[in-house]
Structures are given as C-alpha cells and as structure tokens.
Design a protein around this nucleic acid. Structure first.
Length: 410
DNA sequence: AGCCTTTGACCAGCG
DNA sequence: TCGCTGGTCAAAGGC
C-alpha cells in the first residue's frame, strides 16, 4: 500500500489500531474509550496478525494521508472493511492522528466511523450501528499501540529506541522516530505530563488507583514520596525478579490517576509466566485483569485504555515487551527473543558495569522537563548474598514466625 | 507462610 | 557545613 505514497510532508504523531469485534460478538453496552481531539485517518485495515501490513508501508501511508482533513479512508480500505465485516471477522483499524492539528471539538471514533466509506462498510447490510461497534472499541487501542511499537521495533530497529508511548488520556499519542526531524526543538522532550482528565464521572473505575499500569512484569513497591517538583505522590517500584534491577517510578494525581511512569534500566530476564504473576490471577503489578480476544489474540488492558486517566511508558524495551506479551504475534516473539538474547549478551559483556539508563530517550521534544539522557553507573552486588548452595539469594524480609524464636529470613 | 504495601528513617547529591 | 530534595531502606503489618 505504501508504495503509492510519497515521502512524508506531514508528521504523524501517532498510529494506533482499533479493533472492531466480529458482528456476532456485538452486545449492547460497553464503555467508550477516550479519544482525544485530532484529525484521524483510517490508514489500513487488517484482520489477522498475518495480514498485518508492514509498518513502513503503514507509516508511509499515514504520513501521506490528509491529516488536516476529516477522517477518510485510504484507497482500498473501504472494500477491506466490507469484506472483513461480511466474513464476521474481527477487524483492526489502523488510524493515524496528527498532533499538530488541533480541533476544538472532540473527535471520537464515531467520527471515523461516520466517514462516508466506513459508515457504509459497517452499517449495512447488517444493520449494525457503528455506535454498537464503537462500544467495543475498547482498550485495544492502547494495546494495539504497544503492538504497533513492536512493529516499529521490527521495521526501525535502530530508531525504535526512541519510541515512546503516551497512552490513556491520549491513547493515540505514540511517537515515531522518523518524525523527529520534522519537529521543532521545543517539541522534543523526554517526558510528557499527561493532562488530568476527569473521567471518573462517566467512566468506571477499574481499581487501578493504587497500582501502576501493567507492563507484564512483576513489581514491588519499595517507597513512596511526595515529590516537590511535581507535587504528586511518587511511588517507587522494583522488578521482583531476582537478577533484575529495573525500577520504575509512578506518579499519580491527587485523585489517584497515573500521570507518569518512568522506567529505569532494562530487564535481563524473560517476562514472567502469567500464572505466576499474581495470587489472584491478575497482573501483579497492579493492573486489572485483562481480556483476551481469543480470535485475534489481542489482549485488552483496560487500565491503559484511558479509562484511568493517563499512562506514560517511557521505556522502549518495556513497551516492546508489553506489546509482545499482549499480542501473540510470532514475529513479536522472535523479536523479543532476539532482544532478550542481545540483552543477555550485553549483560554478559558488562557484568560489572551495568547500564542504568533513564529510558526517557528524547524523541519528542518539547518545553517539558529536560533530564539527563542516560547514565552509566557501577552497581555493586552487595545486596545479593552468595550462599553456599551456589545460588545468589536476596533477602527481602525478616519476620518472627509463630512457634519459632528465631526470625526467618525470606 | 509468602509476598506485598506502608511509612518513617536514612542516605546521597547538590547548591 | 548545612539544608533541601529525591531516592532507598527496612521494620511492621496486611492480605
């Protein structure tokens, strides 16, 4: 598809996908995801992982799309919509959105679906209203965004380091390195503070107030503090994996919505198995239980959907892993494996000197905070005890067990 | 019993 | 040296 498009003249701040379930799975109700104002253009439709078009083509198509106009269907997509809908298959919509164009009135997917081509594709001949379809366009937008990032990893391996996810309050806000050059310096930043949205009134709470967003890893909170700079409580989390030194900071607004997540470091281990992640079966690090679409293999993470207000993931690696965890893309897994292997290699090579990187790589720029890009520190292992069993153990607690006068070290 | 969060204290960097 | 600030520790308690 992209070969028909010329070099981009318009920067696209975000590409994301929305999933429309099969028509037979429609049911009434549902929660409308939040979509920020902005022009949207349907770039592509696809119905399965294997049909997922190459990211470069999507990008080319997105960049050439008329972002300053109301949402439109690119050539061929209308027929694609029709075919997928007739075949009762879940349909993914690749949507582009531009940050440089502000529309005062809120533009929601209904606008997209109301576009001439798309309306005809969805509404007839089945009589299914697009509003019903929209009711099911849920958190998969955010999910797919992570998936999209992985696609970016696949197609722009060198550039993907600076891919940044901005989710939730503006779920379409993902950034792509190719646009970097087109942005002015004051648009570049390492960190975005997301606007607080008062969504609690009309959107259900998902018990995410006290927990960070899920990224597939297990985190343990080791501190919380009021930071003067942000005047919001900041929570500190460590990856619970024994050998992993990754940390993250989570800032929340007064009402408990996540406003910022900052990752530090790189995971040197695989994603934990889902069944090991939490006692109650949900994500251990605090996200809500997720929904998995068995047909598409997509994984719907409610919290990141924007229902919770905001989420920022600053780690390109984590973002990739998020995507790989949630999607069942083989390509993704291969990439992940490759990355893991590369990461292990790197770890071996720098066994003593480990990277401690603030992964808020400055891709986007803006007048927001400016922080040091990355730093390398020498981390000692003194917190890891080497016992005579050959394994390294880390003490994480001590408690007097009933019936035993000696404290048991955990 | 395992594993988590809470929270006050402590530490280190910086001006 | 001192005070401020952000980050971390670790005992205590909860689930």
């Amino acid at each position: 598809m992209g070969e028909n498009f010329k070099a981009p003249s318009v920067s696209v701040s975000s590409l994301s996908t929305l999933t429309i379930p099969p028509k037979d799975s429609f049911f009434g109700g549902g929660n409308m995801p939040y979509f920020s104002p902005g022009p949207m253009t349907l770039v592509s439709t696809f119905f399965s992982e294997s049909e997922y078009p190459s990211f470069s083509q999507l990008l080319a198509g997105a960049m050439a799309s008329p972002l300053a106009k109301p949402p439109t269907l690119l050539p061929g997509e209308e027929e694609n919509c029709k075919q997928g809908y007739k075949q009762n298959r879940p349909m993914n919509l690749m949507v582009a959105q531009s940050p440089f164009f502000t529309i005062p009135t809120a533009f929601t997917p209904s606008g997209l679906l109301n576009s001439p081509g798309f309306l005809s594709a969805l509404q007839s001949p089945f009589g299914m209203s697009h509003q019903q379809a929209l009711a099911h366009v849920t958190a998969q937008a955010a999910l797919s965004q992570s998936y999209l990032q992985t696609q970016a990893e696949c197609h722009f391996p060198l550039q993907s380091k600076s891919v940044q996810v901005l989710g939730a309050s503006d779920p379409e806000e993902s950034s792509l390195q190719p646009q970097l050059d087109t942005m002015s310096s004051d648009q570049k930043s390492k960190k975005f503070e997301l606007p607080q949205l008062s969504q609690s009134e009309d959107k259900p709470s998902f018990n995410s107030v006290d927990r960070p967003a899920s990224d597939g890893y297990n985190w343990r909170k080791y501190g919380q503090k009021m930071v003067k700079a942000s005047e919001r409580p900041r929570s500190y989390y460590k990856c619970t994996h024994l050998k992993c030194l990754v940390k993250k900071k989570v800032e929340r607004s007064i009402d408990g919505h996540i406003t910022e997540i900052t990752y530090k470091g790189h995971h040197n281990h695989e994603l934990p198995q889902p069944n090991k992640r939490r006692r109650d079966g949900c994500a251990q690090d605090g996200s809500d239980c997720s929904n998995i679409n068995p047909e598409t293999g997509t994984h719907t993470e409610i919290e990141i959907n924007g229902l919770n207000g905001a989420l920022v993931a600053h780690s390109e690696q984590v973002s990739t892993e998020m995507a790989c965890e949630r999607s069942v893309s083989n390509e993704c897994e291969e990439i992940e494996d490759a990355e893991t292997a590369a990461s292990k290699e790197h770890d071996d090579a720098t066994n003593v000197k480990r990277m401690k990187t603030t992964v808020e790589t400055p891709i986007l720029s803006s007048s927001h905070k400016a922080e040091p890009e990355s730093k390398i520190v020498v981390q000692t292992r003194n917190e890891v005890d080497i016992l005579d069993d050959g394994f390294k153990w880390r003490k994480y607690g001590q408690k007097v067990v009933k019936g035993n006068h000696h404290p048991s070290c955990i």
